[in-house]
């Protein structure tokens, strides 16, 4: 199993001098292709910071992060932008949908940024909306959808560029438990069908147990790693 993301001794410090605060104090983590990993910890533990660094949304104060074997700290900003656009998908707790626009135009945003033609965007947009069973809502305004539907739109948006990795930051945090578990199942099925690597950031132990590996974070350090044999390869239950 090839490694998709490798983090070596990463430290993230905010501020300087006496007011300096270390959110991460030396973390090593390797994520393999097709793996489902949960980063679990309480709020303020540094789990979100870790995800931001792994997703190249931020740069570590020290240490290195490699994506597909390439050291990200040696890439220029443009290359990092393109890497995120090509390889990563994001699902956030807040949906970050543009309520005034149609579901379809929300979904195709990554392709628009990538400079894909409108016709191709529409074709692939409808394809991913079908995958999340929302193709009938393609032309509805995003603000008219329910919470669960919105999160499915977000997953479709994360999926549209055929990413290697999907980062999901508390993807079910804003949803009731029934809808939440449907969203989880949808994400796990993507891992199973397409082999997409999933990285969850959560404080929900139930969700973490469904992942192959649980990485427990506390005060900026990995305190323990649990491997769930029952979760099995490619996220089978």
């Amino acid at each position: 199993m090839a490694d998709v993301i490798t983090a070596k001794n990463i430290v993230k410090t905010y501020g300087k001098g006496e007011s300096a605060f270390s959110a991460l104090k030396g973390v090593d983590l390797t994520i393999g292709e097709g793996e489902v990993v949960a980063v679990i910890g309480k709020s303020g533990s540094g789990k979100s910071t870790l995800m931001h660094l792994l997703a190249l949304l931020d740069t570590p104060t020290s240490g290195s992060i490699s994506v597909n074997g390439a050291n990200a700290s040696q890439m220029n900003r443009k290359k990092v932008d393109r890497l995120r656009n090509d390889e990563f998908g994001f699902v956030f707790q807040q949906f970050f949908l543009n309520g005034d626009e149609t579901v379809l135009s929300n979904v195709v945003l990554p392709l628009k940024i990538a400079g894909i033609t409108p016709r191709e965007r529409k074709r692939r947009g409808l394809e991913v909306l079908k995958a999340v069973e929302l193709d009938d809502k393609a032309n509805s305004k995003a603000s008219n959808l329910s919470g669960g539907q919105k999160q499915r739109v977000c997953i479709a948006r994360a999926l549209i560029n055929n990413p290697k990795v999907i980062f999901a930051d508390e993807p079910t945090g804003n949803l009731d438990s029934q809808t939440g578990s449907k969203i989880e199942s949808l994400l796990f099925s993507l891992n199973k069908k397409k082999g997409i690597t999933l990285i969850f950031v959560t404080h929900d132990p139930d969700l973490a147990k469904r992942c192959q590996r649980e990485v427990h974070i506390k005060d900026g350090k990995i305190v323990s790693v649990t491997v769930n044999k029952a979760a099995g390869k490619r996220g089978s239950k």
Partner: peptide
Amino acid sequence: TREIGLMKALGMGRRK
């Protein structure tokens, strides 16, 4: 602000 943040997260460059 959030829309800008999302676009940047999804790989839109500063110049664009």
